[in-house]
Write a protein that binds this DNA or RNA. Structure first.
Length: 286
DNA sequence: CTGGTCTCCTGATCGC
DNA sequence: TGCGATCAGGAGACCA
C-alpha cells in the first residue's frame, strides 16, 4: 500500500539510479494496466488499447522522476512522460535480469547505461495500479492540478482552507486526494493520533491550535516514514527490493486491541468512510 | 455538494 | 490437505 512516503522512497531511488539511462519499453505483458489521462483505466470504456508502444517511453533518455501525492512521473528527454499510480500493491523494480518466475510483472523497460543494461519492472499483483502515458510534461500537470496540495508540505493556513465550512469528518477529508494528496489509511490514522484528534471530528470544528498541530503531525509522520524507508506491510519494496522500517513505529495502524503507547488505553477500531480506522479513545477523544 | 455502497483484484489467513 | 469464506484497500462509478 504505497502512500506518499513509500512513493517518495521509490522516486528518490529511481532518480539516483536511473536518470540518464536510455529507456525503452521492451515488454507490455498486460495492456489493461495502461490507461489514459482522464480515464485512468477504461474499465468498460470500449476503446480497446490502441496505445502505441511509443507512448510508453521509447528510446529516450530518462531525465527526471517526480512525485505528487502517491503518483509518480517519469520524464523523458523527448518530451514524453509516464504517470504511474501504484494502487494497492504496485511496485517498480530495478533488476539486472528479468526473472521469468516473478509473477504479476505487467511491463518491462530496458535501461541502458554507459556499459550496463538493467530493467525496470512494473509489478502489481492486485492490479489496482495503472500507467498513464502523457504526450508531454504538461499532460502530467493537467492530471496533477486536479490533486490537492501535497501532504508533505502542508501548512496550517492551507489546512484551514481545506477544513473550513466542512461538516465532513476529518479523516474522510484527509483521504480525499482532490483536497490534499498523499495520505492513505495508514498515515491518516498515524497523523490523527499524533495530533490527538478523533477521526470523526467534524472538520469545521477544528480550532487554530488543532489545525496547527494536525499540519505539523502530518509533515512529521510523513518525513519520519520517509527516513525509515516507508512502511512494508506486505507488498511494498523499494526498487532494489529492500523493505521499509516504519511499520515498526506505527502507533495505531494495525494495533487495534493493543495498548496505546502513550496512555495504555486499548486502541479501538471503527469503520470510517468504509475503511478500517484505528485510534486511541483516550488520546483522541471526540 | 455529500455520504454511502459497490466494484475492481489477489494473496493471506482462518475455520472446518 | 484442501476448500470456501473473509478481509484488506485506492479510487472511480453510481445512487439517494
Amino acid at each position: 500500500m504505497p502512500e506518499l512516503p513509500e512513493v517518495e522512497c521509490i522516486r528518490s531511488y529511481l532518480e539516483h539510479t536511473c536518470v540518464g539511462a536510455k529507456i525503452a519499453l521492451s515488454q507490455l505483458v498486460r495492456e489493461d494496466i495502461v490507461g489514459s489521462v482522464g480515464s485512468p483505466r477504461g474499465k468498460r470504456s470500449a476503446k480497446k488499447s490502441t496505445t502505441p508502444k511509443v507512448a510508453l517511453l521509447d528510446s529516450s533518455t530518462l531525465v527526471g522522476v517526480e512525485r505528487k501525492g502517491k503518483q509518480l512521473g517519469l520524464i523523458a528527454d523527448n518530451g514524453r512522460a509516464l504517470l504511474i499510480r501504484l494502487g494497492m500493491s504496485g511496485q517498480l523494480l530495478v533488476v539486472e535480469s528479468v526473472d521469468k518466475n516473478l509473477s504479476h510483472v505487467h511491463a518491462v523497460w530496458s535501461l541502458r547505461f554507459n556499459n550496463t543494461l538493467k530493467f525496470l519492472l512494473f509489478r502489481d499483483p492486485r492490479r489496482f495500479g495503472s500507467i498513464l502515458p502523457c504526450r508531454n510534461r504538461a499532460g502530467i500537470d493537467d492530471h496533477w492540478n486536479k490533486l490537492g496540495p501535497d501532504a508533505l508540505t502542508i501548512s496550517q493556513p492551507i489546512l484551514w482552507q481545506i477544513m473550513k465550512n466542512r461538516v465532513t469528518g476529518v479523516k474522510a477529508l484527509l483521504l480525499d486526494q482532490a483536497r490534499i494528496c498523499g495520505l492513505g489509511n495508514i498515515y491518516v490514522d498515524e497523523s490523527l493520533f499524533l495530533s490527538g484528534i478523533h477521526p470523526k471530528k467534524q472538520a469545521c470544528f477544528l480550532n487554530d491550535v488543532e489545525l496547527q498541530l494536525l499540519a505539523y503531525s502530518i509533515r512529521r509522520v510523513l518525513s519520519k516514514a520517509i527516513h525509515a524507508g516507508g512502511s512494508t506491510l506486505r507488498d511494498y519494496r523499494t526498487p532494489d527490493g529492500a523493505e521499509g522500517n516504519f511499520q515498526k513505529a506505527h502507533s495505531v495502524y494495525g494495533r487495534i486491541g493493543l495498548l496505546c503507547t502513550m496512555c495504555k488505553a486499548t486502541i479501538v477500531g471503527d469503520i470510517v468512510g468504509g475503511r478500517t480506522t484505528a485510534f486511541c479513545p483516550n488520546c483522541q477523544a471526540l
